[in-house]
Design a protein around this nucleic acid. Structure first.
Length: 301
DNA sequence: ATCTGTGTTGAC
DNA sequence: TCAACACAGATG
């Protein structure tokens, strides 16, 4: 008698059912036809959950990769760029949550829900006249600039587009430094937590707002080249302290700019008009249904 | 009974 | 770092 060992089928075919490997990075097959997502950090695997759709697992990996390894992380699909408003708000969302929170959302499949919620809050936050509603602390993209050759050249200065300068970094008449060219010193924190101090002033000769002292060191350390993007953010901590942040992205030679001068990025906002036709605030997002869900964002990084 | 996610190993 | 493979636990 045969004790069901060969329960009616060929062992070689059923005992070693080679699982189909995925072509997506960070995606592994499951026996039931589903797909798992995982990412490694510090020699350890971090499980990102299982998914019915292979591509969805790949997207989960991409999200984790961008949170864990930054914008340069290798991804399955095109990475997020701060030049697309929709993407910028997601970057803001990512940077505002800890790794464990993001992983938790991915495993529970609540990431997109949370992202929607976050975007809705940001919109609401804006309407209260620049005053934040809750206690939430997040980064807000103020503006970005595609640096010109002279911004990263020997002039040792970055020209801040006037409209942005006057809106976000207003100078008191006295500080404009027409006489002694004084200006003020501004501190910015970069993505690595390093603090950069720049002199910020107004140049009457060129009618321009500029970052001068300290700028060339930033250019050098970050290896900035013409065409790269420098973005400025602000961040409120629990109290009323506002912190300025600076970030930059090295644009690849071939790579071009998403929402640059070309396309039809439209915003029925009102004011806000760029020569380039782009303003993209991370917080300026098209309205969406907006479901409510409970959440508890305790810890951070 | 199924499915998820970990233990583990070896290739890169 | 990464995925293949095996399978211990978790889940229902």
């Amino acid at each position: 008698m045969d004790l069901g060992s060969s329960s009616g089928s060929n062992p070689t075919e059923e005992i070693s059912p080679k699982l189909p490997s995925s072509s997506y990075k960070g995606v592994v097959p499951q026996h039931n036809g589903r797909w798992g997502a995982q990412i490694y950090e510090h020699h350890r695997r971090i499980w990102l959950g299982t998914f019915a759709d292979e591509a969805e697992a790949a997207r989960a990996y991409d999200i984790a990769a961008q949170r864990f390894r930054g914008r340069d992380a290798a991804t399955n699909f095109p990475p997020l760029t701060e030049t697309d408003p929709e993407n910028a708000s997601e970057l803001t969302f990512l940077s505002a949550h800890s790794k464990v929170e993001i992983v938790d959302m991915l495993r529970k499949h609540t990431y997109h829900e949370e992202l929607r919620h976050s975007r809705r809050n940001q919109q609401l936050g804006r309407n209260v006249g620049g005053r934040r509603t809750g206690t939430w602390s997040e980064r807000e993209l103020l503006f970005y600039k595609v640096v010109t050759p002279s911004d990263v050249g020997k002039l040792n200065r970055l020209v801040i587009p006037k409209q942005h300068a006057e809106k976000h970094f207003p100078l008191r008449e006295g500080d404009k430094g027409e006489e002694g060219n004084k200006g003020v010193l501004l501190n910015f924190e970069d993505a690595q937590g390093k603090v950069w101090r720049f002199r910020y002033s107004y140049w009457n000769s060129s009618q321009s707002y500029v970052l001068t002292k300290g700028w060339s060191r930033f250019v050098k350390e970050k290896g900035l080249n013409p065409g790269d993007v420098v973005s400025f953010w602000r961040y409120f901590d629990g109290s009323d302290m506002m912190q300025l942040l600076i970030d930059c992205k090295n644009v690849q030679p071939g790579e071009e700019f998403a929402a640059s001068s070309s396309s039809d990025v439209q915003m029925n906002e009102s004011e806000e008009n760029d020569d380039q036709g782009v303003r993209l605030f991370g917080v300026n997002i098209a309205s969406s249904p907006g479901g409510s869900s409970s959440r508890g964002n305790t810890e951070n990084r």
